[in-house]
């Protein structure tokens, strides 16, 4: 992350929020930029994932449809060979807040998958092309097959971006809610995917607790072909798949932040009005206005 974008992020937050939290954000974003090495209570030295710039961070964050579409391509061509995505339906790909595919595009992706259905009138299970209402199928018929193949079951990816995190430590964890840092999961996934730094061992990862990870380095430069001119590098793939997984885990994020802004503006106005009313009413006590309904002391 460049210093320029870091500054822009902090400045943007400061302007947008115009609250006490904004000063904290500049400090915290700067502080978290430097990986501080192992400071957690765990004995193993694990590097702290660096904070990345994401389009969906902050109070007005939105997913970048082009990025999600690239991430979807990475998922389909790389991750889906082992990992399921069982909570995402093909219809979800049409979400305007998400990948924003046309119905024809989403249908084409759905039909590329074989979905097990049945039983038919003869009592037999059969396979048919996917429909929009279907969910992404898994490459394995069941967990046992996957365990037999890999020795471990590759986790479902639907919620991975919310199910992974790392230790922030004191006092950063106290600042996080006020600077709205909710991207620990994706920062960790990005760090993990770019953390295969040991050339001799494809199962060694800088950011994985214990460093020995069952999944060998899944990405390599040029492995997935991008049509939109984005760089075909491991960094870019990691970035795009992480963003895609964040969308898969939190598809209502954009709607949530959009409604949230309106609700908070409303509450701020309402609270200000109530404060004025409260001041007005309590002022009666000081300016000697008549108190027709003064209370009785308790008996």
């Amino acid at each position: 992350m460049s210093h320029c974008s870091l500054f822009g992020r902090a400045l943007g937050l400061a302007i947008l929020l115009a609250s006490a939290a904004s000063t904290g954000s500049a400090f915290a974003a700067g502080a978290s930029e430097t990986p501080s090495g192992a400071q957690g209570p765990h004995a193993l030295a694990i590097d702290i994932p660096a904070r990345q710039v994401w389009s969906f961070a902050g109070p007005f964050g939105k997913y970048d449809p082009a990025q999600l579409q690239r991430g979807l391509k990475v998922y389909r061509e790389v991750c889906s060979n082992c990992h399921s995505l069982k909570m995402v339906a093909f219809r979800d790909l049409m979400s305007p807040d998400g990948p924003n595919l046309t119905e024809a595009e989403a249908r084409a992706i759905a039909e590329a998958y074989k979905i097990k259905d049945g039983p038919n009138d003869a009592g037999e299970m059969f396979e048919r092309p996917g429909r929009l209402s279907d969910y992404f199928p898994w490459a394995f018929p069941n967990e046992q097959t996957a365990r037999a193949a890999f020795g471990a079951v590759p986790p479902d990816m639907s919620l991975l971006a919310k199910a992974r995190t790392y230790e922030r430590g004191f006092p950063l964890f106290l600042l996080d809610p006020f600077i709205q840092y909710q991207e620990r999961g994706v920062d960790y996934i990005y760090a993990l995917l770019t953390g295969y730094t040991n050339d001799k061992d494809p199962n060694w990862d800088e950011y994985f607790p214990g460093h020995k990870i069952a999944m060998p380095n899944p990405l390599s430069d040029g492995a997935v072909d991008y049509a939109d001119g984005a760089p075909k590098t491991v960094q870019q793939y990691a970035k795009d798949i992480s963003a895609f997984l964040m969308w898969a885990a939190e598809p209502k994020l954009v709607e949530r932040k959009r409604i949230g802004f309106r609700v908070l503006v409303y509450l701020a106005v309402f609270a200000a009005l109530l404060y004025l009313v409260k001041r007005k009413i309590w002022a009666r006590l000081h300016n000697g206005a008549s108190e027709a309904h003064r209370a009785q002391p308790p008996a």
Binding site: K162, A163, Q182, G260, L267, A271
Partner: peptide
Amino acid sequence: ACFLIFYGWFVFYVPNYLGDADNYI
């Protein structure tokens, strides 16, 4: 109303801050 602003901040902007990541497994 002030308390609801605080509450709303968590609900809309950092809804998973107080939860545990492991509970999404």
